[in-house]
């Protein structure tokens, strides 16, 4: 039963329809969580003892960075599935993930710069954490550029999947960079072995924003996936049916 349901996702028209339904559900939940998180983070949470109000950028910056990294792992995994099983849906999702992932990486870098200027005293510093996240952005952009450079869709998907897998090594580097090198960026507040080093009133909105951003990303992935799937299947009968002809 379950297996059959999953198997059906592999069919392009089924994917197109189900993704449309799931996208709406995911985005509704994401909107509720993000609104609650914004209220909690901007209104209810107190100021920080050291940074004052500026620390509220954390509610955007940290979820954006998590999504940027998570999206890359998903892209590499679906890329591998596409390489091994030659599944069209996996190839489309891989390419859809590059777009959402790149936009969240830009968000993490931009909010980091905006936060760094008043607290550290600089917009940018060539520190291991910041540099490895910049590399992540280049990996996403390289993926999109490579895909556009190769005419044949299937060849493009294979080349891009290999690039995604090679770049996977960067993800643990990003996470551990603050331990391995002397960085200006501080260590993890939440994603560490001991309990989070953040007061509960500040932690709850952060987790709401993080979960909301994750769900928004998942919905965006499906939304991009539908568009790219339709483009790839433009000569098929189901596409014509969807177009209403």
């Amino acid at each position: 039963m379950m297996l059959r349901y999953l198997h059906e996702w592999g069919s392009p028209p089924v994917f197109y329809q189900r993704a449309g339904r799931w996208q709406r559900v995911l985005w509704t939940l994401a909107a509720l969580l993000i609104l609650a998180g914004l209220w909690g983070g901007l209104v209810l949470a107190p100021a920080d003892y050291e940074q004052g109000q500026v620390y509220r950028i954390i509610y955007i910056h940290v979820p954006a960075a998590w999504v940027a990294m998570f999206a890359y792992v998903v892209m590499a995994v679906t890329g591998a599935i596409g390489l091994i099983w030659r599944l069209k849906v996996a190839e489309v999702i891989t390419s859809a993930g590059a777009r959402t992932g790149a936009s969240f990486t830009i968000l993490a870098l931009a909010t980091g710069a905006i936060w760094g200027q008043p607290t550290w005293g600089t917009w940018w510093v060539w520190d291991a954490r910041l540099t490895s996240v910049l590399v992540l952005l280049f990996l996403y952009l390289g993926f999109i550029a490579l895909e556009n450079a190769i005419e044949d869709r299937r060849n493009a998907a294979r080349a891009c999947a290999i690039l995604a897998l090679v770049g996977l090594v960067n993800i643990p580097i990003i996470h551990f960079s603050v331990y391995w090198w002397n960085t200006l960026h501080q260590g993890p507040t939440v994603a560490r072995l001991s309990a989070p080093a953040i007061h509960i009133t500040m932690l709850v909105p952060l987790l709401l924003m993080a979960l909301g951003s994750m769900l928004f990303y998942a919905g965006a992935l499906l939304s991009w996936g539908r568009a790219l799937m339709l483009e790839r299947e433009r000569s098929s009968r189901w596409a014509a049916r969807e177009a209403g002809v």
Partner: peptide
């Protein structure tokens, strides 16, 4: 030529810090 402040990973309200 440049001095940058490093902050730690702890976040808490001022009253708690006090």
């Amino acid at each position: 030529s440049q001095v940058l402040a490093k902050h730690d990973e702890n976040y808490m309200p001022p009253e708690v810090a006090e």
